[in-house]
Each structure stands twice: as C-alpha cells, then as structure tokens.
Design a protein around this nucleic acid. Structure first.
Length: 112
RNA sequence: CAAGCAAGCCGCUUGACCGCGCCCGCAAGGGUGAGGAAAGUCCGAGCUCCGCAGGGCAGGAUGCCUGAUAACGUCAGGCGGGGGCGACCCCAGGGAAAGUGCAACAGAAAGGAAACCGCCGGCUUAUGCCGGUAAGGGUGAAAGGGCGAGGUAAGAGCUCACCGGCGGACAGGCAACUGUCCGGCUGUGUAAACCCCAUCCGGAGCAAGACUAAGAAAGGGCAUAUAUCGGCGGCCCGUCGAGCCCGUGGUAAGUCGCUUGAUGCUGCCGGCGACGGCACGCACAGAUAGAUGGUCAUCAGAACAGAACUCGGCUUAUGAGCUUGCUUGUUUU
RNA sequence: GCGCCUGUAGCUCAGUGGAUAGAGCAGCGGAUUCCGGUUCCGCGUGCGGAGGUUCGAUUCCUCUCAGGCGUA
C-alpha cells in the first residue's frame, strides 16, 4: 500500500474524514482520489522520543502489510497513535489495527 | 584480602520464515544499510549565497605560559593556587597604585582611619575632665602585616631577627615563573559589580543554493530627481545596485547539492605529549511522510537510544561485565 | 536549522546581593452558630538540579533538567 505524502492531504483527511478510536489508536477513513488505497501514519512528538515513534510506525505498517489483501481498495486510511501506544506490544497494535479497520468497513468479509 | 585512584574495552550472537531503502545486473540474483553518544545544540570550521565585507560607535566572546590544530571556548605539556595520608583530583587563573560603586547586621570605628572598655600621664572630692596609646577585651566574613625580642610613663615597624607582601638587581628558563641578594617599611575585599587592558568576531544558513516545469501577464497609478526603494545582522559614515507601486494571492512537483572526506583501521618514523609525516592494503548508509522491522527459537540477563549537508570538540544519558597500571592499610612468607 | 522565554507555597503571581523570602485564593486548627455559610484570630507548606564567584546567592556565572513560544 502506497503512503500519503502531502501535508495538505493529511489536513484534508483530518477535516473531513470519518474516524473511530480505541485506547491506543485513532483511524481516519476517506475515499481515495485516484482509486488506489493510501496509508498514512502519524505519531506525534508527544508520544515519545524518536526510537519509540519509529517502533510504533513500523509495527503499524507491518500489521497492515501482513493483512494487505484483506483491505478493500479505494480508501485513504490514516492511523494516529495515542500515548498508550508507546507501551503496547506488537500483538496489541495488530489487534487494534484490524479491529478498527473492520469497524470502519474496510475489510473483506471473513469467511466463516 | 579490603578500601580507593587513574586509563581503557565492549555496546548481544546465531538461525528460520515474512518484509524495506540504495547500488550493480536484461533477468535470475548479488552487494550494502544507524551510534558511542547518531542526542542536547554549548563552541569551532568546511561548503553555499548575500553586488567581496572599509572606518567609527555600540555589541558579543575569550583571558597564566608554551605548544598542537583547518579552527576552537577543545586538547597536550608546564607554571601558580587549593583539597587529599597517598595514588590523584579541582581551579573564568589579566588589571584593585586609572576611576566609580558596594561591604547588610553587629561594632567606638569598614578604608588616607577610629579611643567603647582597658592601659599610662596630668588635673580633680571618689563620680569626672584633658591628653597619650592599637599590647589586651569585645563585634564582625574582614579591624590597616604575623610571631618573638628590645624599647617605653603606657605603647606603637619606633628598632632588630625570621616569615609574608611590595619594588629593584642578578642567575636559571623560549615563557608563565622560580631562586639569591639589596632596598624601603607598605596602600582591606569585591572586576562570575560597572570598568580598564589585550586578542578575536561581516551576515545568513543545505528549507543554504543551482537547474527544469509552471509563473513572472494584461491593465492601472506615481516619478522623472538626488528623491525613492533595496543589499552590505544594529546605528552613523561610506559603498553598490535598481525606475517604483498596485495587480499579487497561491502551490511546494522533479533533478542536483548528497556523500570518498582536514575520513577510519594497520604498520614504520619523529615528538614527553596533544599531534605530525610516510607506506601498503582494506573499509565507508544516503532517505524525502523519511529505509534496519515483525514473529519464533537461542540466552541467567540486554541499558541509553535512531543518520537528514559534512567534519573537530564539549556536555548529558547508559545494563551486565572485562582489562591494565598505581595508592593506602592488614596478614603471611 | 536558527532564535527566544519561563521554572518561587496546592494554584496565580511579587521580590535592588543582606534580618525569619511576601500577597491573593485554597488547606488546617480555633472562636462565633443548634448546624452550615459569612466574619474574626492563628498555623503549615518554598526558590527545578549540580557546581562555582562572594563574608553572604532566589538574585551573579557555568553546566544541566523540564516546560513553552517564534520563524524558515
């Protein structure tokens, strides 16, 4: 999944997109402009120092990558980390990513 | 063995599966990929641009000496001062006789002295008055050199020896400084108070800057003269450039800069050392929402922490451990 | 990257190098009241940290930690 690059696109998504949140993450979902899906990850400086922020960003990207074929195309998705994400391990983050994505209707229906 | 001092090292390893950036390759694939602090941004440089940067004022920084270095506020070796039994450690360490300010409280008196108590002399009825005196008491962080002897009415560098400080000469040393002798007999502290002296400093920063694409339009207004605007971080002088303003409000796309360099390792030589010279071989990331990750195993355990133009330092954070040299004490031989 | 500011009581802020660091609100205790409020009296809590300069530091200097701001 390609990444969102422009700061203006991020701001547009924050202003207009639908969102949901749990304890460690916030998700934004907006219709894509070109039909392909894009991923954006925001971890602010308040969360921790550079090593902590990088770790959160990599884990979110990994969780999305491993389940990439389950995502429906045509959406721009932004994840924003909240403070407890600094203490969360990979499994908690992965669970949160999938749960929030499912709640926003971004995943294909699981076969029972 | 115990306590301690100094210097240094290391900064998990390996494997399986799934992934990422860059380079090479038609492809398959191969190579390579964060730190000792990458951090804080406290200093110093390279590099780039600002129409080469000149003078004065203001401002800032540094401050024992000699050296190292591209440079430094860094480092090395010395000197001086302080602490420790010692190994060793710490110090912004120029000028207080150019001037100004400050020194609370206490105390009689806080800086070209001063008599509260005391001591001594004179007068006087005992209280007391006048004069001399800084040895003693008391106050204070600090009381106008220290201690002893002579001296005296009592005292005083008043005189003398020693010590300390000041000035001069000589000797040693590149120098800071040290030693010896002589002289005079002395003038508190604070400059991380203002200040004085010496030395240094043009500014901005890779979002610098260059190129490409796009745009820079049409139109309107004001000036044509020494005015206006702009550049040279602040002000003045000086200097350079340009007609000026409205329209004119937005977007940050691509390529370069961008990583091989005052580089690191190794060896030899010079130097007490910082460091320098030479040689051969090897090594060295380059992203642009921003690459090193995820899971499992291995393990007694795994800190602080992530490159964004590049170097030299400083400072701070840091788990478990290891090495070398030295000091003091105790015991045994 | 460059530049700037602030840390003082639980909170908001004062404080020329010098006595026991103050003010308002809050808190605690007492008085008043049947109880509470109001009012009155009293009390506690301290200079972000380390080092230095000074006789003496919240104040001056250096380093450091934390927080905040501006700008490209």
């Amino acid at each position: 999944m390609r990444s969102i690059k422009k700061n203006s696109r991020f701001r547009a998504i924050y202003a207009t997109a639908k969102s949901k949140a749990d304890r460690i993450l916030v998700i934004y979902r907006a219709p894509s402009e070109d039909g392909e899906s894009h991923l954006g990850i925001t971890v602010s400086g308040k969360i921790g120092h550079a090593v902590v922020r990088n770790r959160i960003r990599r884990r979110i990207r990994e969780a999305v990558r491993l389940s990439e074929e389950r995502f429906l195309p045509g959406y721009d998705i932004v994840f924003v980390a909240r403070k407890p994400a600094a203490q969360a391990d990979y499994h908690e983050l992965e669970e949160s990513v999938l749960k929030l994505s499912g709640a926003m209707g971004l995943l294909r229906e699981e076969k029972a």
